[in-house]
Simulated scan of single mutants.
Amino acid sequence: MVRAATISADHIPEEKMFQQYATRKNLRHRATISVLAVAIATALTAPAAHGDDLSWGTNPGGTETRSSFAYDLEPGEQARDSFEITNYGTEEISLAVYPADGATTSNGSLELSERTDLATAVGAWIEVDQAEVALGPGEKTSVEFTVEIPTDAAPGDYLGGMVSSYIDTSAGTVVVDRRLATQLAVRVGGEGAVKLNVSAASAQAPIAWNPFEPVDAIVGATVANEGNLRARGSYTITASGPFGWGSTSSEYQLDELLPGSIVAIEQQLPGLWPLLWQQVEVRVNAEDIDSLPAGFSTASTTFWSIPAGWILLLVAVIAASILLGVRRSRRWEADDELEEPVAVESN
């Protein structure tokens, strides 16, 4: 179940929140702010409020307890379902109801399209029976809708959401579009493939002034879901010097990626001993949404790390050795002069 209006982390656990964002658009002489929160909540009903008068919640309808919509359908098949909306506020609220396509942003979060965007997948396959609803305080309604898969739909996973939208004009010159959505996933039958590909590895390390402490390298890469099924997994970053000296590695979790999505990853790799020329490898271990292994991909690069502390220490040792050698040489020359025999003339 997901909850409403201006949603904060106090109402939805962080691990359950897909995205909360705001965009601004010029609309003639007005600014429009669109706020979308996409979440899955497994807790009991607890409305998230905007002031004392605006608060509503959404969740899948029916008698079955669900946190989101999910369908396994073949091309040409249909499914009927309902979107339940409850007004927890103290005033009547009017909401628009519509489906939206979903996509993974470059930072890995889920983004649902705007109502005015052209839908090409989930948003285009769903028809709602009622596009507008008006609810009094405490009222609940279920909006029926049909999911129909086109006969030429490609097999694979598609993600989107059922959206409820409230247009707030109380701010005068600013129009606020508050949207609350429930995730909707469709798997179209056919041959499926899970394939994550990592590329464009990069790395850099700060100058190491302390010769007795390692540094933290910054390693980045690009991960693309080149399959047609949702995928996640983990990735391991390993860095080392020549001949594998000073090897260090760390493992990180990779969030779920939709087919066709590309995300940039960047991590701080601790424990790197600068050895001038170094190499780094990023290995992505793919899994399907059921956590079954689905192969791996690697990308590597080289970079320079400057052990300035060791270089300065070496220079100091060499300089001290040279100075000590000069002093000893001069002392030996002085000793040789003192030991030379003095010629004595005889009468």
Rank of each mutant, 00 (worst) to 15 (best):
V2G: 15
I7Q: 11
S8L: 14
D10Y: 09
E15C: 03
Q19S: 15
Q19Y: 08
Y21A: 11
T23Q: 14
T32P: 00
T32S: 14
I33N: 08
L36N: 10
I40L: 13
A43W: 06
D53H: 13
S67K: 06
G76W: 07
D81C: 05
T90Q: 10
L95P: 01
T104S: 11
V122M: 14
V133P: 06
A134P: 00
G136I: 13
F145S: 09
V147E: 01
V147Q: 02
E148V: 06
P150F: 10
T151V: 13
P155V: 04
Y158K: 07
L159T: 14
G161Y: 03
S164A: 15
S164M: 12
I167A: 14
V176I: 13
R179T: 01
A185F: 03
R187P: 01
G190N: 04
A193S: 10
I207S: 09
N210I: 00
I218L: 09
A224Y: 02
N228M: 07
G233F: 08
S249P: 00
S250P: 00
L257T: 09
Q267K: 15
Q268W: 01
P270H: 08
V282C: 05
A286V: 05
P293G: 11
A294P: 01
T298W: 04
T298E: 13
F303S: 00
I311V: 15
L313M: 13
A319Q: 08
S321C: 08
I322F: 13
R328F: 12
R330N: 14
A334D: 10
E337R: 15
P341Y: 12
A343K: 13
S346E: 11
